[in-house]
C-alpha cells in the first residue's frame, strides 16, 4: 500500500508572530519551524500502518521553498520512506491543493493523510480541495483510522461528539489526536534520513482566486483587573455592570 502524508512547515506553537515589509511578509526572525502538529499526527498514524501492513510505503510531501527541507528530513527521520518537495511558495490553499492533486494523479496513492488544519493558515480546506480534484471522499477531522483490506473505519469529531464512518480506499483524511501518538525521531532514523530520497518537482501553473493584501496583529490586551479572593461578589458585580456579560 502507498500512503502520502502532506506536511506543513510552520512556526513552533510558542512563536511570537510578527510581520515585515509593511505587514505583507511573515517575519521569520528567531522563529523555529516544526512539522504542523496535526500533520505530525497524520504521519505518526501512517508509520503505524506501515509497521502493521507489509509492503506499505510512506511518502511525505511539502509544497514550499528550499528552506522547508529540514522539515521533510524530519519526516524521513520519523520513518517515511521518501520525500517530495514542490518548489513553490504555498501562497494559498487552492494553489497548494492543486500541486498535491497533480502529484497524486501521477502516482496514485491508496491513502492520503493530512492534518485537520495548518497552524499558519488555519484553513482546514486543503484535504477537501485535493479530494474534490481527485474525485474521492474526504473526511476531517479524523480521530481514529483503522484499515481492513481496502475498507476503512474512522471516527470523526463533530461539535460536541463523534461520528463513526466507513469508507473504501482511496480517500483523503484530515487527522487530529488521538489518532496516534506523536513520534520522536531516534538516532538511527536521523542518520538514515540523510540518504533517503528527496525529490524536488517544479509547480504547475494554477490560477488562484485569492490574493493576500496584508496581515494585521490584534490590538494589545489591556491590563488585568485583580479582585481579592475574599471579595468574590465584586467579580460578579464587574461582570454584570462593567463587562455586561452576565
Amino acid at each position: 500500500m502507498k500512503i502520502l502524508v502532506c506536511i506543513t512547515h510552520v512556526p513552533d506553537t510558542t512563536s511570537k508572530i510578527n510581520f515585515t515589509d509593511n505587514n505583507t511578509k511573515f517575519d521569520t526572525t528567531g522563529v523555529q519551524f516544526i512539522i504542523g502538529p496535526y500533520d505530525d499526527y497524520a504521519l505518526a498514524r501512517a508509520i503505524e500502518l506501515k509497521d502493521a501492513i507489509a509492503g506499505t510505503t510512506v511518502t511525505v510531501l511539502n509544497v514550499g521553498p528550499a528552506d522547508t527541507e529540514p522539515t521533510l528530513r524530519k519526516g524521513l527521520a520519523i520513518g517515511a520512506d521518501d520525500a517530495i518537495r514542490v518548489n513553490a511558495e504555498p501562497t494559498d490553499s487552492f494553489f497548494v491543493a492543486s500541486q498535491i492533486a497533480a502529484i497524486a494523479k501521477e502516482t496514485p496513492y491508496d491513502l492520503i493523510l493530512m492534518g485537520r488544519e495548518s497552524i499558519d493558515y488555519n484553513s482546514g480546506v486543503v484535504h477537501g480541495i485535493v479530494a474534490e480534484l481527485l474525485g474521492i471522499p474526504s473526511i476531517s477531522p479524523v480521530m481514529k483510522l483503522d484499515l481492513d483490506g481496502t475498507k476503512a473505519k474512522l471516527a470523526r469529531e463533530i461539535e460536541g461528539g463523534k461520528e463513526y464512518l466507513e469508507v473504501s480506499l482511496p480517500f483523503v483524511a484530515g487527522c487530529q489526536e488521538p489518532i496516534a501518538e506523536w513520534k520522536i525521531p531516534n538516532m538511527r532514523g536521523i542518520m538514515s534520513a540523510r540518504t533517503k530520497p528527496l525529490k524536488v518537482v517544479e509547480p504547475k501553473a494554477v490560477d488562484s482566486g485569492v490574493k493576500l493584501q496584508k496581515f494585521e496583529l490584534p490590538p494589545p490586551k489591556g491590563s488585568v483587573k485583580m479582585i481579592p479572593a475574599d471579595n468574590v461578589p465584586e467579580l460578579v458585580n464587574l461582570l454584570k455592570n462593567e463587562a455586561k456579560v452576565l
Binding site: F19, D92, I119, G209, V210, L212, Q213, F215, L217, P218
Partner: peptide, 18 residues
C-alpha cells in the same frame, strides 16, 4: 476583501476574493 483569522488567533490576514 475578507478578514481571516490566522496563526491560530495570533494574527489576521486581509485576502481579496477575485
Amino acid at each position: 476583501v475578507v478578514k481571516r483569522s490566522i496563526y491560530t488567533g495570533k494574527a489576521f490576514a486581509w485576502v481579496e476574493l477575485k
